[in-house]
Design a protein around this nucleic acid. Structure first.
Lengths: 218, 218
DNA sequence: TAGATTGTTAATCGATTAACAATC
DNA sequence: TAGATTGTTAATCGATTAACAATC
């Protein structure tokens, strides 16, 4: 029940969220997951605003587009809002990801529960350093790149996380695309050239820092 | 020469960029730095658009607000544009950062040149695990938290990077704030409560991934 | 009931884009 | 000159916000 009543234009029934809404919903979800961990039962738009720095009116507006999830005078049920947002984002299922690079960063990612917490499962870790192949990283035995194609197909992997040196990133990206991976998470600072149907997200802590610093300095 | 001619309202002469402009300029800078590494001399707004996914008109507009940096028919000088954007962002100087946590993630950050590339220098690495204190991480000897206050003051550290477990993040943040750190980079998924004058940036790869996945799935 | 907080309207503001003359 | 690309205008679109009735 309650898919957007306030439809702008529905070509095939399902609405595509705008970039902004999708980004904000993802952020609400992050806060809600933490609230769940802390055992919170309800949360108000004002509290969500404090954590996300999104205006509370905007939050209520974003949510009310999909249904009446809140209770006046009370707020939103944390558990139920998590399910609702997951449904809206279409990310209720488990998704399989593959990790490339078994160095410090790869180990950090493999042993963190940051992806697991959001329904992503690391199903394989790859490295092309023969010295690392066969060793343990988190719960995984590091595999050689040769197995890439087979595993991507077997495990239905749509996301590849690149924790490799910049110099290796582009050629690896090409192999991944060819193997059918459609989302690439790039932790190197290389710029990746990929076909239009592939999404690349480059994580740039230093760029984010520059940005934060600007507002600190001025 | 050439600070914004098109001034909206100048209380004390220096204009404060809008959030959007500052964020985009930071992203242009990232692409330009890579272009420099590849030895590129000029770059067009169209090329910048390909890499940043920001509309090319918007890019020209963002830049032309600060001066006429480009050459019609040619594009922008990469080197000169890097300097200009750095100047606009006020991030021409070197800034000192301290890293907290000497685990896998801390090691990955310390040995990466991603911060160095953008004018940030890691001047100290801290951990409160006595087993790690004294060991080497990158070019640094891991220090005990006890030295925090002293080092922050001595080295003029404005940024603290948190690569510690979620459970430790909040209390560490409090110590940092008390020591005078004003920007916190949080790599845990804990929500940090800090005074208003402190900027927290929480890096959330899984949240970004949720977001990317939405556009893949629909 | 009294206090709190949602859902929603209406008005504003800033971001985005197409188009094109200027000019390298 | 011909082709390319900037700088800038003008029009559009979507995001943001204040305000408040509805209601828990």
């Amino acid at each position: 029940m309650a898919f957007p009543e306030d439809v702008t234009e529905a070509p095939d029934g399902a609405e595509r969220l705008s970039l902004g809404v999708a980004a904000r919903l993802s952020r609400y979800l992050q806060v809600l997951r933490q609230a769940q961990k802390e055992g919170r039962v309800t949360i108000s738009s004002q509290e969500l605003s404090t954590w996300t720095h999104v205006n509370s009116t905007q939050i209520r507006r974003d949510l009310s587009g999909f249904g009446k999830f809140g209770k006046r005078g009370v707020g939103y049920q944390v558990d139920s809002l998590v399910s609702q947002i997951r449904r809206i984002l279409g990310t209720t299922e488990q998704h399989n990801i593959a990790l490339f690079g078994a160095g410090h960063l790869g180990k950090a990612i493999a042993s963190s529960d940051i992806f697991a917490d959001h329904g992503f499962r690391v199903v394989a870790v790859f490295d092309n350093d023969l010295g690392k192949v066969g060793s343990r990283v988190g719960d995984h035995i590091v595999r050689h790149m040769d197995e890439l194609r087979e595993i991507v197909e077997q495990e239905d992997i749509v996301v590849g996380v690149l924790a490799v040196p910049s110099a290796a990133a582009q050629s690896l990206a090409e192999v991944l695309v060819e193997a059918g991976v459609r989302i690439i998470f790039n932790y190197s600072d290389a710029l990746l050239a990929v076909p239009a149907e592939v999404t690349v997200h480059t994580s740039s802590p230093a760029v984010d820092l520059l940005y934060a610093l600007y507002f600190y300095l001025t």
